[in-house]
Amino acid sequence: SGDGRKLFIGVGSLSNIGERGMAVEEGRAAIHELDLESGERRIFASGLRNPVGMAWEPTTGALWTVVNERDGLGDETPPDYLTSVRDGGFYGWPFCYWGQIVDGRVPQDPAMVATAITPDYALGGHTASLGLCWLPAGTLPGFPDGMVIGQHGSWNRSTLRGYKVIFVPFVNGRPAGPPRDILTGFLSPDERASHGRPVGVTIGPDGSLLVADDVGDVIWRVTGEAE
């Protein structure tokens, strides 16, 4: 948290759609809030299949995360997403997705479905969006305020997707417009990730954008005008 008193922890689900039973999913598919002084922990938000990167949006102070959604429903369904995270909010997993669209493969809990929150911004199916950081305007020439997302890339769709670093512009604390590419070219023409797979993103001490690549085993440093 901004005051340094609390730690927010993303915990992914153990399974795709709770097929091992929900007892083993207790405390999973959620973001936990840990009070660093008292050691007390609580679930801040739930129903998030795999919340990975998290970042604070400075205008509103809201917590945002990128979430990897479930498999087995096709190339584009449901999309991975970027969303603000409400305290006490439920985001659907495993009963439904993208708000209250029911997943018919899952034994239902209508009361939970009725409370499911629709995410803010779709990122496409199986992009494996993992890293997330806030990019202040002017950090990279030509880029306004917004979020940077490291997309590790798909493995389970007919045409691979992701394998790049994208930027989502924000206005007044909300996404405002289509994503823009910052880094591309990781995927070779024969659809092999031989050039790398971006994951973590952060702003370095010199104001550059740093991108961790877990296939190339390098840190990319991005400055200047992105094409």
Rank of each mutant, 00 (worst) to 15 (best):
R192F: 13
R180L: 09
G72Q: 02
I166M: 06
V218Q: 02
F170A: 02
Y81W: 05
P205A: 14
L132M: 13
F143I: 13
V24Y: 00
S129D: 07
E57D: 09
I219S: 02
A226Q: 15
K6P: 00
V106L: 08
E57Y: 09
I101N: 14
N172M: 05
D214G: 09
S129H: 04
L135A: 09
G18P: 08
G72E: 00
S158N: 10
V215D: 04
H32P: 02
I219E: 03
R161N: 10
V24I: 15
A212Y: 00
P79E: 13
D3T: 14
P205W: 01
L210A: 04
G204Y: 09
P175F: 09
A62M: 14
G72Y: 02
R221P: 01
F8M: 11
G224H: 05
D80K: 13
L82E: 05
A30S: 15
Q151S: 09
G207I: 09
E225Y: 03
G92W: 09
A116L: 06
L210K: 13
T118M: 07
E40Y: 11
S129T: 14
G207Y: 02
G12V: 04
E57P: 06
T202C: 15
G12C: 01
I9P: 04
N68C: 11
A137L: 12
D35Y: 13
S38I: 08
G10I: 14
E37K: 15
V215G: 01
I149N: 02
T59L: 08
L14S: 07
V211G: 02
I149K: 02
R70W: 06
R174T: 11
S84Q: 12
P198L: 03
G39N: 12
I43K: 06
G146C: 04
G2P: 03
G18F: 11
A55L: 10
G12I: 02
P179A: 09
A137K: 15
P144L: 14
R161H: 07
D87A: 15
I17Y: 04
G18I: 10
F143L: 15
R70L: 10
D181F: 04
W64V: 03
W93Q: 07
L140Y: 04
G104D: 10
N68V: 15
L73C: 05
G47D: 10
Y163R: 07
E57N: 13
V66E: 08
A116M: 04
Q151R: 06
L73K: 14
L14Y: 07
S158K: 11
A29K: 11
S208L: 05
